[in-house]
């Protein structure tokens, strides 16, 4: 999402630096994440196991 056109979303999600990723409304991080960490974030947001396989 190119956030410049959506200032209300930038405010809602506190986007000050980019890229910012919001996972399931509860988990967020700035910058790139390696695949294993991204999976961990997704699992955490889904309320499942946070153990990385």
């Amino acid at each position: 999402m190119e956030v410049t056109g959506y200032p209300e979303l930038a405010q809602k999600y506190g986007v000050s630096s980019v890229p910012k990723t919001v996972v399931g409304e509860t988990v967020e991080f700035v910058g790139a994440a390696p695949e294993s960490l991204l999976l961990k974030h997704v699992q955490q947001a889904a309320g499942g196991s946070t153990l990385v396989v």
Partner: peptide, 24 residues
């Protein structure tokens, strides 16, 4: 994605919405 990641994603209890915010 790797096979391991795919297998783990198949086990998710519910759908997850990912939003990536960027600028031009």
């Amino acid at each position: 994605l790797s096979d391991e990641t795919r297998a783990a994603l198949m086990e998710l209890p519910r759908p997850v919405h990912l939003q990536v915010f960027s600028t031009p």
